[in-house]
Design a protein around this nucleic acid. Structure first.
Lengths: 190, 190
DNA sequence: AGAATGGTGGACCGGGCGGTCAATAACTTT
DNA sequence: AAAGTTATTGACCGCCCGGTCCACCATTCT
């Protein structure tokens, strides 16, 4: 049921989703929704929270594994994100959409959660790069945390560009270029 | 007057801006607005168009100059974007905000303009990198267009992360890391 | 001066908005 | 089975939305 609400917000945005929409989509009466969540905004926050937690968790799962394949896992994950962000069937990322819409004048309830989630993703990127570093896929002198932050920017850029209609090949190319720019260990330099 | 409308949409978003808001902010009567633009949506499109054109133009101006300083100009521009995207006083980028809010189900009127603008920015990045390439700041084997696309992703990522509340130092760090990853000409490798 | 013209303002419209509430259904407890 | 308790409903509220429309006024033309 929370999933139905999430999909509605996801597809139409916050302001463009009416409580009637949410009634239709959940099958619940209006009073039930208000009784359970108190508010449209609080309901959105609840959904948003869930989405953020799930997102970070899915990144963790995707990057989990032995040191040897760490860099390749990261590569696959980012390429997957590029593919998912592109195409007319995309619906993009609720985190990005929600943050873009509800980040004005001092109300930090949405941005706080978004920021925490993004930092969580960055953390997992960094851990993955540290694994790659241990395995020797990344140059000894490199700082995995800085690289992770940079890849996070690329990652969010993919989403933004995909939403604007950029095609899949272009997005995947950006990922490849970014990864080629990573400082590889001298022994392995191509 | 168009500027006042733009600021309103820019600060509050599309759906959250009412025609009454636009009346107050422009000082014009409702009939005048409808007479001149026909529609809230058309009015937004007009503003959006203007914003896109101005954005691309300002990138062009910022990156204009001799081959010798090309890479440094690009660096300064991206660092400036990082600073502008951060901080609580930010209001971010209307192109990003508008695209995020109005990019659903087949209506391509917004995304078409956004895509064109982003490709324009990418084009200027690419030209700037070509200048740097001619001057020898970028490795001979590198493809300026691919690098430009990658930096475009970083660029849009900055905006998205800034909107989520990421601090200026972090964003500037991402720019630096991305630029350090560019393939420099062997003679100049640090 | 007087008439024609067209841009302007704001009252007005139906509808849909977020939110409330009393009636009612469903379930628990004894 | 009956009483008590909680959850659910959808009619209802006042408000504000995007959009229409016409009286009005400033300008221009004769």
């Amino acid at each position: 049921m929370l999933r139905a609400v999430r999909d509605q917000f996801w597809n139409k945005g916050y302001a463009a989703t009416s409580m009637d929409d949410l009634m239709k989509v959940t099958g619940l009466g209006k009073g039930s929704l208000y009784g359970a969540f108190g508010d449209k905004h609080q309901l959105f926050l609840r959904i948003f929270d869930m989405y953020c937690v799930n997102s970070v968790e899915s990144v963790r799962q995707a990057l989990e594994g032995p040191d040897a394949g760490a860099l390749e896992r990261l590569r696959r994950y980012l390429l997957g994100a590029a593919t998912a962000s592109a195409g007319p069937s995309r619906r993009g990322c609720l985190l990005a959409r929600g943050t873009a819409e509800l980040s004005g004048q001092g109300a930090t309830d949405v941005t706080d959660r978004a920021l925490a989630a993004l930092q969580g993703v960055e953390e997992h990127f960094a851990r993955c790069l540290e694994q790659a570093w241990h395995h020797g896929d990344v140059a000894a002198g490199a700082d995995p945390r800085k690289l992770a932050a940079m890849l996070l920017a690329v990652f969010r850029g993919l989403e933004a560009l995909g939403r604007a209609g950029m095609d899949e090949a272009a997005l995947r190319g950006m990922v490849e270029t970014a990864l080629e720019g990573l400082p590889v260990s001298p022994r392995r330099r191509r």
